[in-house]
């Protein structure tokens, strides 16, 4: 095969996982769309089938990569391809969040003040929303969703910040341990990271419960509710994904995978974890605090 001359691993066999993934993703979104259009029953079924197929694809595909990696098929150059790809993937995620942060800034700096009569919004306020005054948090001139209370920064969110920051430390500790080949510390570090991640998700869920049941703060609470839940929600989703990936890494570590020089999967997940960490700092500052 071609690698006889060059050791960059170029797969030559037939490869079914992508097409499985496409079928999975498509059923997922088609089912979701059908459910949104009112065909809830069948829509939900198609969607769950899609999720299942997508998960199958991920297990199969990643499993194959892990196997190939442990067979030593990947040289340093392949490793670098993975590194570049993961970094750019994280950058794309950053840009996805940027869209929602952008919406938050725009609402706070432009649209709400204009509705309240600031700057070029004087007539907007006078003629269309005469009783509205700019304030933040706000559910807009019509108080969509009714009166609500904002989520205070210095309760659960502050604790969650501490949790995530600590988990950033524990994962780094685990990484150092891996490089020094201290398997025990590696597993402990990862275990702590996973535990902290799950604790974070749990607290976040509790916070949502509080918001809906005691603060009357809902996704439909105007622009505050929209930005609050979409930003924290997508972040929470990413933390969940990160935690699942960490669990996989933990299990693999327990099974004895990775060696001090060769552990890209570990690093990729660690990078990802730091990324959700940094996004959280942005959330804490701009969504909760300021």
């Amino acid at each position: 095969m071609a690698q006889a001359h060059n050791d960059y691993y170029v797969p030559h066999d037939t490869h079914w996982w992508p097409i499985v993934g496409s079928v999975g993703l498509t059923s997922l979104v088609v089912g979701f769309a059908m459910a949104l259009n009112g065909a809830t029953g069948i829509g939900r079924f198609v969607m769950i089938a899609g999720v299942a197929v997508t998960l199958l694809m991920m297990f199969g595909w990643f499993g194959m990569v892990i196997k190939e990696s442990s067979r030593g098929l990947y040289n340093k150059q392949v490793d670098r391809s993975f590194r570049w790809s993961m970094s750019w993937f994280i950058f794309s995620e950053v840009m996805f969040f940027a869209a929602f942060f952008g919406a938050l800034f725009y609402a706070r700096v432009y649209s709400l003040p204009w509705l309240g009569g600031a700057g070029s919004g004087a007539l907007t306020n006078e003629l269309l929303w005469p009783t509205f005054e700019f304030a933040w948090p706000s559910a807009g001139p019509d108080q969509l969703g009714g009166e609500f209370q904002a989520m205070p920064a210095w309760g659960i969110p502050a604790i969650n910040t501490a949790i995530l920051l600590t988990s950033g430390v524990t994962v780094t500790w685990a990484h150092h341990a891996l490089r020094a080949n201290h398997r025990g510390q590696l597993i402990l570090g990862l275990f702590l990271t996973v535990a902290l991640g799950l604790l974070f998700v749990g607290l976040q869920a509790f916070e949502y419960y509080e918001a809906y049941h005691h603060l009357n703060l809902k996704l439909s609470s105007g622009i505050y509710g929209s930005t609050f839940f979409m930003l924290t929600g997508f972040h929470g989703f990413h933390v969940t994904m990160g935690a699942i990936m960490l669990i996989v890494i933990l299990l693999r570590s327990i099974k004895g995978h990775f060696d001090p020089d060769n552990h890209f999967a570990f690093e990729a997940v660690a990078w990802y974890w730091h990324f959700v960490d940094v996004v959280w700092l942005g959330l804490f500052i701009f969504v909760y605090w300021l």
């Binding site: 204009w114 509705l115 070029s120 919004g121 007539l123 907007t124 003629l127 269309l128």
Partner: peptide
């Protein structure tokens, strides 16, 4: 030419 935007007044 100016856009007529619901909820806002343009001049």
């Amino acid at each position: 030419k100016k856009d007529a935007i619901p909820g806002f007044i343009n001049e």
